[in-house]
Write a protein that binds this DNA or RNA. Structure first.
Lengths: 176, 176
DNA sequence: TTGGAAAGTCAACAAGACTGACATAAAATG
DNA sequence: CATTTTATGTCAGTCTTGTTGACTTTCCAA
């Protein structure tokens, strides 16, 4: 027997305050869960294709992304942002350094630290990867419109872990 | 320099067609990309904790989820939905069947097929996992409000691969 | 100066993805 | 009826990426 779902159009309610709680049915939530799952697949698909040709993986992409965004960050900072162990990150970093995509300089103030920078070659790959990902994001944003994008960001932020959200929000102010 | 985000309420524009293209700067897109990354971590965090205590992984959760949603689906359908190879899926299914969480019955019409069902025990774990995930989704939805949720879903759908989106949209109509 | 803490590296292992080859049973087709 | 195709399962091997444990180097404070 078919269910009678509330329907996505039943949302043009008068109050955006959350009065109408019909959209919080388990069925609606399940759809949101599946949308996240499928969308994340699309989100990573384009960079993954590029990476697989270079014998790199998603972890390499993530490292390149955050080193590009915050040049000079330390290994410790990076592994905190990525949420992985230092050993796991280290393997990825080692190949990136060996291949001349990332440069690791001894920290200025604290010589135990290593500060990470992209080389020209590393910057080039990062640009290629992120441009592929941005292209999809851009298309999705265009398709959905500015209002939807604002909602998209709101929900994503609310879905993050507390500490991560604080981290993410503080990163918002960071310049390129 | 800090960005001025459009803001969820300042969006009462005349056209939802995407006239205002300011939100498509690379900086805005990069934030969307990072929001996806961090949010997905939160999205999977709660089930992951439960699973790790049972020596299961995310792959087991995904299988349980889709078997629960479409009882009797075939192995082939499931691996198409999950986007993995049969060898990969088989390893996961085997343990779930051995542990008495999933039942595999010979297909009715086509006896080559195996139809998958959750056992009572499997249903219980699925409920525990999905309830943890729904709780976070519910909280995020409440925090963001119905209008944001609609936008969230719109952008996610636009981000999926073509074929996946078609699949996802068709699944919307499916009954439990 | 010495001992602990912090940052990073090396080694070994596990989960879960992949490919390729092969087996079996059932359905479909000529 | 014989052959081919389809659906599934299995074995073996590889790769990425996560883990823990043990170690070195460096800093800092008692």
């Amino acid at each position: 027997m078919t269910i009678d779902r509330p329907g996505p159009q039943g949302m043009n309610d008068t109050s955006a305050s959350g009065e109408n709680l019909l959209f919080l049915t388990d069925e609606q939530l399940r759809k949101g869960i599946e949308a996240m799952f499928f969308a994340y697949r699309g989100f990573t698909a384009d960079p993954d294709r590029i990476l697989s040709e270079l014998a790199y993986g998603r972890a390499h992409h993530r490292a390149l992304h955050f080193i590009n965004r915050s040049p000079g960050l330390t290994v410790n900072t990076l592994l905190t942002v990525l949420g992985v162990t230092k050993q796991s990150l280290n393997r990825v970093l080692r190949t990136l350094i060996e291949d001349g995509l990332v440069e690791s300089r001894v920290g200025r103030k604290d010589r135990r630290e290593r500060q990470l920078y992209l080389t020209a070659k590393g910057g080039e790959l990062e640009r290629q990867l992120s441009e592929a990902q941005r292209a999809r994001m851009r298309a999705a944003y265009r398709m959905a419109g500015p209002q939807a994008v604002a909602g998209f960001r709101q929900v994503l932020e609310a879905m993050m872990d507390e500490q991560i959200r604080a981290q993410y929000l503080s990163l918002k102010e960071v310049r390129i």
